[in-house]
């Protein structure tokens, strides 16, 4: 999921606050719907399973998960922690609605995480974009747009 940075400057840089350290580059998976842990994701496959969710059936493993925030049961952090322990977790998290569920979830998932980034990640990052999440500096960089430079969007429908 990581690799050499593409040549040149990032296409776009979002500034926020890093809450879990580390730097990772991976494809973005963007949703405008808040994500539920319990009843919302399947930890064995790293897949969204909530029927009314716009990413229903989509796998987030190895992706930079760009989402508004967490909703639903307090099991949220435990479910995402389980994706880490099962090897199905996302590569990084970017979200702007700060809740105890999402913050603790990011910490125990142990993936680089940036919160409160501007401009709004949901409006500026698209699914399939190659992004770098720098949890040390609190920066999210869009390195390549979806469909450009041979990046494939590979959404796994595993349900």
């Amino acid at each position: 999921m990581t690799g050499p940075a593409p040549d040149g400057e990032p296409l776009l840089e979002l500034r926020g606050r890093g809450i879990v350290p580390g730097v990772v580059e991976a494809e973005a998976l963007v949703t405008h719907d808040a994500i539920s842990g319990f009843g919302g994701i399947d930890v064995a496959t790293g897949t969204i399973i909530e029927p009314r969710h716009e990413l229903f059936g989509v796998c987030f493993t190895g992706k930079v998960l760009v989402f508004p925030g967490a909703k639903g049961s307090s099991g949220w952090s435990g479910y995402f922690q389980s994706t880490r322990l099962m090897g199905t977790g996302p590569a990084a998290m970017v979200f702007n609605v700060l809740t105890t569920k999402a913050v603790l979830g990011a910490i125990v998932t142990r993936v680089p995480t940036v919160v409160e980034a501007e401009p709004d990640p949901l409006e500026t990052i698209r699914t399939g974009d190659l992004v770098r999440v720098d949890g040390d500096a609190g920066l999210v960089s869009v390195l390549r747009r979806a469909g450009a430079g041979g990046i494939q969007t590979t959404l796994a429908f595993t349900i």
Partner: peptide, 8 residues
Amino acid sequence: TNCEGGAS
């Protein structure tokens, strides 16, 4: 209380 998790 906040909505805490297993670790907190």
